[in-house]
Write a protein that binds this DNA or RNA. Structure first.
Length: 220
DNA sequence: CCCTGATTCGC
DNA sequence: GCGAATCAGG
């Protein structure tokens, strides 16, 4: 594989998005993690929180072939300064204090609930039928970043009523979701339910596998 | 062991 | 320029 403009672009994007070199290599396909890192450095993309870089630069790395003579322990006191806690990841703005939405104060907070992964509300046994959050008058809709995405269903557009079947690959510009009305009770539309849920047939009678989601298998 | 990124260096 | 090998921290 060679570094086409396209692939370089993808590398830049994913790298700046904070994906790990492995993930990027995986995504690009045909390259190793090392290749990604090497390329990233050559592109000048360097410097992301590295696990092994707290100390000041000093000649170390014994070359693989040149005289691996290892000098005895250096008498000079090593800085015993404990490496300060690794810089936190992307600083998420902690909303903790202060008013958030100026338009409407929290209309109702009947009880404290926690939000699980994916945004589902956890309910305790006693909380069974917390009143469904009164649908706030949704007049504001997040703007689409680009005209091309205007009619696509983005992550933000997902709700209980639209098909969550992914089209394209996460991280790519045109990644979106099916968005058709769901098969009631399922996360997908009827068509994609057919793809997602398949009866287990007896061995030997299995049909050839249907096309994979995500636009098909990647070459790796 | 697994993971991570950084660096070196033969090609 | 490329990337495997290597290093080193978590």
């Amino acid at each position: 594989m060679s570094w086409t403009d396209q692939r370089i672009d993808q590398l830049k994007n994913l790298w700046e998005k904070g994906l790990t070199a492995s993930q990027i290599a995986d995504e690009l396909g045909g390259v190793s993690r090392n290749a990604v890192i090497g390329k990233a450095h050559r592109l000048g993309l360097k410097s992301r929180p590295s696990p092994v870089k707290a100390n000041e630069p000093e000649k170390k790395a014994a070359p693989k072939k040149a005289a691996p003579v290892k000098p005895a322990a250096v008498a000079a006191a090593k800085p015993r300064t404990a490496p300060s806690a690794p810089a936190p990841r992307a600083a998420d703005p902690a909303p903790a204090s202060g008013e958030a939405a100026p338009e409407r104060a929290a209309s109702a907070m009947p009880r404290i609930v926690s939000i699980g992964p994916g945004g589902f509300m956890r309910q305790g046994p006693g909380d069974q039928q917390a009143p469904i959050p009164p649908a706030p008058p949704r007049r504001l809709v997040p703007a689409k970043p680009s005209p091309e995405m205007a009619d696509k269903t983005s992550l933000l557009d997902l709700n209980e009523r639209v098909c969550r079947w992914p089209l394209g690959h996460p991280g790519e510009a045109d990644f979106h979701f099916c968005g058709e009305p769901v098969n009631p009770g399922f996360p997908y539309c009827v068509e994609h339910c057919g793809r997602a849920y398949q009866a287990q047939l007896p061995r030997g009678v299995r049909r050839p596998p249907p096309p994979m989601p995500f636009g098909g298998p990647r070459v790796r």
